[in-house]
C-alpha cells in the first residue's frame, strides 16, 4: 500500500533555530531518506519552503482569488511529505516514527486511494 507521510511541525527561522540545529536536522533527514531508499520503499520525498512562501488560490465563485500565505494559518504547518510503499499500516507507522521531525512535530500517515499512472486513474 502507498502512504503519504505529512510532516507537520511549528515553523522556525534559521536564526531561531541556530546554525548547528539546522545542520543536525538536515543530516537527520539525509539519513532518513537514505534509509527509506535503501529499504526500497521510497517513492518521493520533498521538504517545502516555509509557509510564508505559500500562495493560496480559490475559484469557488467562478472568479480567481489569490491570497498570500498558507491555506490554514496555524502554528503547525506542513513542512514536507514522503510517499512510501509498504505492506500495511504497521510498517508505515514504523517509518513515520523514525522521521526526524516526529520528535518536534507530528507525522500524519495517510493511505493513497487512487493515483494517475500512464494516462489513467487506478487503484493505488
Amino acid at each position: 500500500m502507498r502512504y503519504t507521510l505529512f510532516l507537520h511541525y511549528p515553523e522556525m527561522s534559521e536564526e531561531q533555530l541556530g546554525r548547528e540545529a539546522l545542520e543536525a536536522g538536515m543530516e537527520a533527514f539525509r539519513a532518513y531518506a537514505e534509509a527509506l531508499d535503501e529499504a526500497g520503499v521510497l517513492r518521493s520525498a520533498e521538504v517545502l519552503q516555509p509557509s510564508t512562501a505559500s500562495t493560496t488560490v480559490t475559484a469557488r465563485d467562478g472568479a480567481l482569488h489569490v491570497q498570500d500565505g498558507p491555506f490554514a494559518d496555524t502554528k503547525d504547518q506542513i513542512g514536507g511529505s514522503f510517499v512510501i510503499e509498504v505492506d500495511g499500516l504497521d510498517e508505515a507507522l514504523d517509518w513515520a516514527g523514525r522521521a526526524p521531525s516526529a520528535t518536534w512535530g507530528a507525522v500524519e500517515v495517510r493511505p493513497a486511494a487512487v493515483r494517475f499512472v500512464d494516462g489513467s486513474w487506478r487503484p493505488a
Binding site: M1, Y3, L89, D90
Partner: peptide, 10 residues
C-alpha cells in the same frame, strides 16, 4: 480496510 491494518499477529 482503508488504513491498511494488516491481519497479522505482530
Amino acid at each position: 480496510r482503508d488504513a491498511g491494518i494488516a491481519f497479522r499477529v505482530p
